[in-house]
Nucleic acid binder design. Structure first.
Length: 579
DNA sequence: GCCGTTTTCGGCCCGACTGTTTTCAGTCG
């Protein structure tokens, strides 16, 4: 069985155990193990030599189950568990207000196994009669089922921002509001976000909450208490607001920024120092460990970290991926910013499927202050995208050279191509043509359903081609729409490192590919990143901001990003990469 | 399920909100 499948089984086991009403700690153990495996290096050898149990969070029971899965491809424990839980129950977890225990209770008393049956039971008033349920729960379940159908549960970060900015501005404009921020996965710059979390500091919550629920675009008020309320916006996005006194603001902001894993570690660290950290503050625990008293008041989020002897951890890094250990040393890396970029390399023009011309694109790039712009239109195999054949490539090289010589645009243009990686890993254009270009982006645009072995070999072969400079959108995923194709990420990254090539950070908000979770390890192997907007129009240059988010979450530094280099350096490096 | 220079058993982050209760369980973040 493949590693990704093992991870899938562990994750599904956690969900199934939850539905069985198992101990939440056991559930958590499976979730944690799945996450650990996702980023684990040398998984195969550890399974083989039996050292899996040395990893924190993986004990004897999980070692045995993972080993069995890996070696035999099946696990009795899991199969029995899955057979005992109807699939409909898994889907019910997506309904707000329903967790493992309530779903189990519904199943036990009514025998509901599908969402349709649950809907029918609600409509017949049967659910309200169950102990622990009532009329309101029944209504909420019905509404939840309807919403689930109407809207996707998650949204692209880029899309969510359109909702966030006006709300933040509105909150900050209120007389009663001293501070307001957005927290949650949005603040951590996750590629997709579920709910939006707003925190406001005020001594007078009522008018703030009234404004929040009364905004234009609010479709439903899902909850409204004294200090917390929850709305659903047009488009289906859920937004929560919490109003706290100013002295609690930064604690609340930190808490609701998360992630959950980060918070757990922070609280554990506080406890070890004789302190208790919560969204309400930092207090001294009376007994036990001697410790310095916490600061009397906190005026920035940074001071919370300082109180725990940590360097400030930017929100993007708060994923429970060892950021606290790094911050312990007080040496957090300086993360890149949009202004560090001096150009981009994967951009389309009207020659293929872009909306703007070469000159338009160059002018817009110059207006951003970029020093250079790489043009990489599609190659001929991308027929639907009007890909360029040999002749048109050579013509475009000529156009670019002419434009560069003319000095009409204040940016240096590099002639490139986004060449299709064909099914067997060969490239869509002959070497003689590719050799005429300044650089080559190689991408997969077809035959996504190849086996992991085929796709891995295909990518590796393309990477090993001497004229390939970088790999475009490595996994081919479309967030919330299409899963990545199957390939061995480690092998591909190793091939890129071994050949001194570059991996693109495709900054299209729907791609954000290669995923930030792989970046730190890839960079440690010497792989360079190149943040590219995959622009099909001048306004798509804005996407680089999302690309910077990926780099920051991946803990990359500017020197690890190819296109933070000056024009002079880029020229030299591109030339050096050519055979 | 995992974990342990106080523990191999008894912990595992913690508090608000909701809807259901008559003192609290479940869910959520």
């Amino acid at each position: 069985m493949k590693k990704t499948e093992v991870i899938g089984v562990l994750g599904e086991t956690a969900v199934l155990l939850e539905l069985m009403g198992e101990s939440p700690f056991r559930v958590r153990a499976y979730q944690a193990a799945a996450r650990t495996l996702e980023t684990m290096e040398g998984f195969e050898s550890r399974v083989a030599d039996g050292t899996l149990g040395e990893i924190k969070g993986i004990g004897p029971a999980l070692t045995e189950k993972i080993t069995t899965l890996w070696e035999t491809g099946t696990l009795d424990y899991f199969e029995k568990l899955r057979a005992s839980v109807p699939v409909g129950l898994l889907e019910m977890l997506e309904i707000p207000g329903l967790g493992g225990k309530k779903i189990k209770s519904l199943h036990d008393s009514l025998g509901t196994e599908t969402i349709e049956e649950l809907r029918a039971a609600c409509k017949a008033g049967k659910v309200a009669k169950i102990k622990g349920f009532g009329a309101k729960t029944e209504e909420k379940i019905l509404a939840g089922i309807a919403n689930r159908e109407a809207y996707n549960a998650r949204h692209l970060w880029w899309k969510a921002r359109e909702a966030v900015n006006p709300i933040l501005e509105g909150l900050r404009g209120l007389l009663q509001v001293e501070r307001a921020e957005v927290a949650g996965s949005f603040r951590r710059h996750m590629e997709t976000v579920g709910d939006l979390d707003f925190i406001a500091a005020s001594t007078d919550p009522a008018p703030v909450m009234d404004w929040f629920v009364g905004q234009a675009g609010v479709e439903e008020i899902s909850a409204k208490g004294e200090t917390k309320c929850s709305i659903r916006l047009a488009g289906g996005m859920q937004a929560d607001l919490r109003v706290v006194p100013l002295k609690q603001f930064f604690f609340a902001l930190h808490h609701f920024t998360g992630s959950k894993d980060h918070n757990v570690e922070m609280r554990q660290r506080a406890l070890s120092m004789g302190l208790s950290l919560s969204e309400w503050g930092l207090k001294q625990i009376d007994e036990g460990v001697s410790s310095a008293p916490p600061p009397a008041s906190i005026g920035t989020e940074k001071e919370i970290f300082t109180a725990l002897d940590l360097a400030y951890i930017p929100p993007e890094l708060r994923e429970g991926n060892g950021e606290i250990e790094i911050a312990e040393c007080g040496t957090l890396p300086v993360l890149p910013e949009v202004c560090d970029l001096r150009g981009v390399f994967h951009n389309h023009t009207t020659a293929s499927d872009g909306r703007d011309t070469l000159v338009d694109m160059a002018t817009a790039a110059a207006a951003r202050g970029w020093e250079y712009l790489g043009i990489a239109d599609h190659s001929k195999a991308s027929f639907q995208a009007n890909g360029l054949d040999e002749k048109r490539v050579l013509a475009q090289i000529e156009d670019i050279a002419t434009l560069n010589r003319s000095g009409e645009v204040g940016v240096h243009l590099f002639a490139g191509i986004e060449v299709d990686i064909l099914g067997d890993g060969s490239l869509d254009l002959p070497t003689a043509v590719l050799a005429e270009l300044d650089y080559v982006v190689a991408s997969v645009h077809s035959r996504f359903s190849q086996s992991e072995e085929e796709m891995t070999a295909r990518l590796v072969r393309a990477i090993e081609h001497p004229l390939v400079t970088m790999v475009g959108h490595l996994s081919g995923r479309l967030l919330l729409r299409r899963e990545p194709y199957e390939f061995n990420t480690t092998k591909v990254i190793d091939a890129v490192a071994a050949n001194g090539k570059i991996i693109e950070i495709n900054a299209n908000p729907q791609r954000l590919d290669m995923d930030w979770r792989h970046w730190r390890k890839a960079a440690d192997k010497g792989v360079l990143a190149c943040i590219n907007p995959d622009a099909h129009a001048v306004e798509h240059f804005d996407f680089v901001e999302a690309g910077i988010h990926v780099a920051r979450k991946g803990v990359l530094q500017s020197r690890e990003i190819f296109n933070t280099s000056s024009l002079h350096q880029v020229r030299e490096r591109l030339a050096a990469m050519k055979p």
